[in-house]
């Protein structure tokens, strides 16, 4: 009868112990406290009681800010998707010719995508507020850059993963690399592109709320002002509006995803 578990080697055992110790230390470093959690309960209840009923005083202005928030998310996502596609083609392994120049483009585009993805959108928003000033344009740029990082990576990976057969067939027919990418690779990766793009829009909608906190337009600044002035009833109205917006975008995204993936014939 074989053992249920393989006995780990000494180095493997030490690695497990170190990992466990690091996790425990991380809880300490993160200030995790059950007592604070329990004692914070009444404060949370107090906060919630002061948010009710939500204030309807500034509903028209808030609605306008909410629309602006979504517009930032939509435009930022569209621009991000458009820019990320060529970058993803260059960054996808085995898609372009194996030459010195294409290797430079490959490394460069991967580095750019990694930079856009790893720097948080809030940091990009701060940078763009400094460069283009306060307002929705800074937020839109931040979302676009964040979307390039997000879509660039996933677009590239989905193109690397498509079945190679159709590309080989078109290469055998004398098609160029560009034709092969547009005819065989992109159509095969399209379901993944659609899914990634809709996730990017959902992500951008959530982000666009937070970006307002640093002055990059949208409803976020309204939330910050309401919290700073202890107007919790107005804050609750804003939170509920954001909740409805994000829920709507997710729901519509899900329906659109299904419709597009069922697809029309081209």
């Amino acid at each position: 009868m074989p053992d249920r578990f393989e006995r780990p080697g000494i180095l493997q055992f030490i690695a497990y112990v170190l990992l466990a110790a690091f996790v425990i230390w991380s809880f300490q470093g993160a200030g995790w406290s059950f007592s604070a959690l329990v004692s914070g309960g009444p404060a949370m209840a107090d906060f919630l009681s002061r948010t009710w009923p939500p204030s309807m005083d500034r509903l028209p202005q808030l609605s306008s800010a909410l629309v602006e928030t979504f517009q930032m998310a939509l435009v930022g996502t569209i621009i991000g998707i458009i820019v990320s596609l060529p970058l993803a083609i260059l960054a996808a392994k085995g898609l372009t010719k194996q030459s010195f120049v294409s290797r430079i483009f490959y490394s460069g585009s991967r580095l750019l995508i990694a930079l856009f993805r790893t720097v948080p959108d809030l940091v990009w928003a701060l940078v763009f507020v400094i460069t283009v000033g306060l307002g929705p344009f800074a937020g839109t740029l931040a979302i676009a850059v964040d979307t390039i990082g997000f879509c660039g990576r996933f677009f590239a990976e989905s193109m690397e993963d498509v079945e190679k057969g159709p590309s080989e067939a078109l290469t055998a027919a004398g098609a160029s690399k560009v034709d092969t990418i547009f005819c065989a690779v992109i159509p095969a990766a399209m379901p993944s592109f659609v899914t990634t793009s809709l996730f990017a829009l959902e992500k951008a909608t959530r982000s666009s709320v937070v970006l307002g906190l640093v002055g990059a337009g949208g409803i976020g600044i309204e939330l910050k002002v309401a919290m700073d002035f202890f107007d919790y009833q107005l804050a609750m109205t804003i939170i509920l509006m954001i909740f409805v917006l994000v829920l709507l975008v997710e729901r519509i995204g899900s329906i659109a995803r299904n419709r597009i993936l069922e697809g029309n014939t081209q």
Binding site: G165, P166, A169, C183, A184, P187, M190, P191, G263, Q266
Partner: peptide, 10 residues
Amino acid sequence: FQKHNLVPRV
């Protein structure tokens, strides 16, 4: 090809 290698979805 053996597996026809058509582009799917089009």
